[in-house]
Amino acid sequence: MMSTRITRRFQSLAEEGRGGLVTFCTAGDPDYDVSLALLKGLPAAGADIIELGMPFSDPMADGPAIQQASLRALKGGQNMVKTLDMVRAFRSDDDDTPIVLMGYFNPIYVYGVDAFITDAKAAGVDGLIVVDLPPEEEAELCLPATKAGIDFIFLTAPTTDDARLDKVLEHAHGFVYYVSITGITGTASASASDIEEACKRLKSHTDLPVAVGFGIKTPEQVGSVAAIADAAVVGSALVNVIADNIGDDGKATAGLVDAALGFVSDLANGIKGTVEK
C-alpha cells in the first residue's frame, strides 16, 4: 500500500499501542482566522487526525450542533476556496498530521470535481468523507480522487449488512469510518459492547483501520472507544465548546481557541489513561 499521511499515522499509533483521537470542526466556524488558529493548535493538543468540515447550507446527516456550525461559518464568509486555503496554511507548519475534509457533495460538485481534486491535493488534503456519496455513486468522486492519491473514506453503519460491507469496502482507502448509531451527529451514543461487536465484524472484512464516530462526547467515551477501535471521532462535543465561546454578537470570545484546545487535551488524556491502565 502506498504510504500516505493517514497510513503513516495509523502505523505510528499501532507502534505506540494506542488508539487515535480524530477531531472534527467546521472550517470557518465562526470565522476564518479563529478557525485557522484552532486548526493549527489541534495536533499539539492531542488530535491525531483532523477532520475539517466543509460547510454546507443543508447538512442532512447532522444534528443541531454541526448544523449551526455550518451556518455560522457560511455567515462568516467561508467557502470552498477558503477551506482549501486553510488546509494550505496548516500544511506550511505541519507536514505530518492527516487532514480529512468532510461534508456533502454539492459544494464539491459545483466547484468542479476535477478542479477540486487538483486543488485539494495541492493544498495537502489527505482524505475525503462525503456523507451523501455511497458506493453506488463512487464514479462521482471516489474513483477520480483515489486515482489522484486522495483517500476516499467510506462510512459504514449498523444497517450495512455483511453482503453490503464488501461492496462498501471494495474501494475504501485510508480508514473505515463506522457510524456507530442509526441517526444524526451529536445525539445518541452506542454501547461499548455494540461498538466492540461492530469492530470485530468490520475487521473480519478489511485490514484497514477502523475509526468510530457519532455520539462520542467525553474523555471516558474516547478512552473506551479508542481501546476497542483504531480511533475515536469527536465532532459535535468539540463544536459545542466552540459554540459556548461565541458572544451574542456572533463573534468568537477571546478564550475560544484555548477552551476548544483544552477540551481536545482532555479527550486525548482519556486515551492516555486507558494506555497507562
Binding site: A61, D132, P134, E136, T156, T182
Partner: peptide
C-alpha cells in the same frame, strides 16, 4: 437522479 444518500439509508 441517482442515490445521493448516507450509507445508513442505502440498504433501506
Amino acid at each position: 437522479g441517482g442515490r445521493f444518500v448516507a450509507e445508513t439509508l442505502m440498504p433501506l
